[in-house]
């Protein structure tokens, strides 16, 4: 009886309520939130490029070649008189588009392979893990370059799908490794036994019972990989193996800048590099915070 009385005496506002997760994230991970705001800014640029960019990013203007930054051209112009700021704004489309598509593709395929590998175990698992080991022995840019060399270029709806494949491929083994280890622990859970006892097939168990439970590491890896994918796309475009002219892309803007331009137009080098660095930095900050927030075990 006494216990009941105590319970009743608790005022209604003392009952712990679940704090709003968004506010909680901002309070606990201010740096991650700052990263998130920068990402939002890039999205605004990418989606609103038509209204934000003052010039056509591909318009050549020989009367304004290598113009210095000023009122006319915020970040100056390049050797063809194209407005650097406009090209950067449109470049956000390329960077985010390629980055997000390839990170999603790589992580999704990787998660499926990893979950299957962990769930089935045995020989399949062994074979997949050996392939993953081999792929992990190469730097991501090397794998991407091999794909570029073998597949060449194929544009579908204005997107080079082979470039996306090249950037997605190196992400697959990393995601597969993480999905596998998460699956191994989930496969031990009673609800998997229950699903099996209910007579569900393998594909239903993997798709409906295991995959939803590895969504946290999946989201963390996707954000981390978008940063890597943006960097990789910029590197490939810089090398002339990625996005090709006249499409505006940050890495491409830095490509082929000879020593003459270093002296005559340093803005051609400074701004695109800053755009890449800031984007990668923002996704890294947000990704790290998301990891600490969703899955503190992965920290370290």
């Amino acid at each position: 009886m006494a216990d009941v009385a105590i319970v009743r005496s608790i005022p209604a506002d003392a009952i712990p309520h679940r704090p709003n997760p968004v506010w909680e994230f901002i309070r606990k991970e201010p740096l991650g939130f700052a990263g998130f705001l920068v990402i939002v800014l890039y999205f605004v640029f990418a989606l609103g490029a038509v209204w934000i960019a003052p010039y056509d990013p591909e318009a050549v203007d020989f009367t304004a070649m290598l113009a210095a930054p000023g009122a006319e051209h915020l970040f100056g112009t390049d050797q063809y008189g194209r407005d650097v700021f406009s090209r950067l704004v449109y470049g956000a489309r390329t960077a985010l588009g390629v980055g997000i598509l390839s990170a999603l593709a790589g992580c999704t395929i990787g998660a499926l392979i990893g979950a299957a590998s962990g769930y089935f175990g045995g020989r399949i698992d062994n074979l997949i893990q050996r392939i993953v080991d081999i792929m992990l022995a190469f730097p991501i840019i090397v794998l991407a370059m091999v794909v570029v060399a073998v597949l060449g270029k194929r544009v579908v709806f204005g997107i080079d799908v082979n470039l996306i494949a090249a950037i997605a491929l190196p992400m697959i083994p990393k995601m597969a490794r993480i999905a596998r280890s998460s699956t191994l622990s989930i496969a031990q859970m009673p609800f998997i036994d229950a699903a099996r006892a209910a007579g569900y097939g393998h594909s239903r168990i993997v798709l409906r019972h295991i995959l939803p439970n590895i969504i946290a590491p999946y989201l963390i890896m996707v954000t981390a990989f978008i940063a890597q994918a943006i960097l990789l796309e910029a590197s490939l475009s810089f090398l002339g193996l990625g996005v090709t002219e006249p499409t505006p892309a940050w890495g491409l803007m830095l490509s082929g800048t000879s020593a003459d331009f270093y002296k005559a137009a340093p803005w051609m080098i400074l701004f695109p590099g800053l755009a890449i660095t800031l984007a990668v930095f923002a996704f890294n900050l947000f990704g790290d915070s998301l990891r600490d927030w969703l899955d503190p075990k992965m920290k370290g």
């Binding site: 960097l231 080098i269 590099g273 890449i276 990668v280």
Partner: peptide, 17 residues
Amino acid sequence: VSGLAIPSFWLGMLIIL
């Protein structure tokens, strides 16, 4: 942390600059 975000080719260009 900056070292992880700056593309090495851009850093190279900054050095030349």
